[in-house]
């Protein structure tokens, strides 16, 4: 494959067709990334993974019961499944000697297995299939009816979710900050850390569900963590970290679409691959926390210690 074919030719024709896909990929990654900042800082990234897997049976059951793809039953189903998962994890690890990591592993794989079986059994009736669970349906968005700015309804919805999440984070910045940094202390200034935690889990469920139809159940974890982790390597300020995570989403959505066009692959995994490349670049070259810095630092430190 030549340079031209990979880098130039994708941009030569019908770019407009990819505008909704790009917008959707950006909205999904940015919304997930904003919430993901708190998951990374609270070291509960894998709870995000667990929730995104376990909402599957909830979504499928909602599809079957409500007999439609409207978003309200889907959201309720997913929320119920998400809450059930948190409760089960809690139950297993507080009431037996099983440790938390194993409890998470047991719960979300079981929920997901139930979801996969339901999809295989009833998928045909609900226009859900295993491909949708894996890849999402980002690529089919372009063919939908355009409502506003050349964007279909589902993209507009995702955009509003992004706006709402951003607004909530701006409003409750202080509360989220304290309870993430030092939950025990948060209680002494009248912020209930458990309440904030559940609110965050609620945000998480909202973005996971709204992202589901676009990116499926498995890749969501990348959307949640990659932007935040990349930004975390680049800055020491929380607000800047959030801003950078949005920039990361923007760039990875852009190159995700590029990879999609160049290699004819699905957009969701392509966006993740683009995001991963950005992460690797940040990891290697980050001025303060990067790999290169790590090697030079450890060299500095060893000479320093010898001198002392």
């Amino acid at each position: 494959m030549s340079f031209y074919k990979i880098f130039i030719s994708p941009w030569e024709n019908h770019l407009s067709a990819y505008w909704p896909i790009f917008a959707m990929a950006f909205f999904v990654t940015a919304a997930c990334g904003l919430v993901g900042n708190y998951l990374v800082l609270r070291r509960i990234s894998l709870v995000g993974d667990a929730i995104s897997h376990s909402v599957l049976p909830g979504i499928v059951i909602a599809f079957i019961v409500a007999d439609s793809r409207s978003s309200l039953p889907m959201f309720i189903g997913a929320l119920v499944a998400g809450v059930l998962t948190t409760l089960l994890i809690e139950m297993i690890h507080s009431r037996s000697k099983i440790k938390q990591d194993a409890a998470i592993g047991i719960t979300f794989t079981t929920m997901f297995a139930i979801g996969v079986i339901l999809v295989s059994l009833y998928g045909a009736d609900t226009d859900l299939d295993l491909d949708c669970v894996l890849f999402g349906k980002l690529d089919f968005i372009a063919s939908k009816e355009k409502v506003f700015l050349g964007l279909p309804q589902i993209v507009i919805t995702m955009g509003s979710v992004l706006l709402i999440i951003a607004l909530l984070i701006v409003l409750f910045y202080k509360e989220l900050l304290v309870s993430s940094f030092d939950p025990n202390f948060a209680a002494t200034v009248g912020i209930k850390p458990r309440f904030v935690h559940y609110c965050l889990m609620c945000f998480l469920s909202i973005v996971v569900v709204s992202a589901f139809s676009a990116v499926g159940a498995i890749l969501v974890i990348a959307m949640l963590i990659l932007p935040a982790a990349t930004a975390y390597l680049l800055t020491d300020k929380l607000w800047l970290m959030m801003l950078l995570s949005i920039v990361h989403s923007l760039i990875s959505a852009f190159f995700g679409v590029h990879i999609t066009v160049a290699f004819q692959v699905s957009t969701a995994p392509a966006t993740v691959v683009a995001g991963m490349i950005l992460f690797l670049i940040a990891w290697i070259f980050s001025p303060n926390h990067g790999l290169l810095r790590y090697f030079t630092n450890s060299f500095d430190l060893s000479t320093f210690q010898k001198e002392n």
């Binding site: 993974d49 982790a229 699905s266 790590y294």
Partner: peptide, 28 residues
């Protein structure tokens, strides 16, 4: 080991991006 990223986030990153890369390859 080399950065301030914690274990949980590192696991999530590797898990999802390798998986996504695999999906892309399968599609290719």
């Amino acid at each position: 080991r080399s950065s301030r990223i914690k274990q949980d986030a590192a696991l999530g990153i590797v898990l999802a991006s390798f998986f996504a890369f695999g999906l892309c390859l399968i599609r290719i």
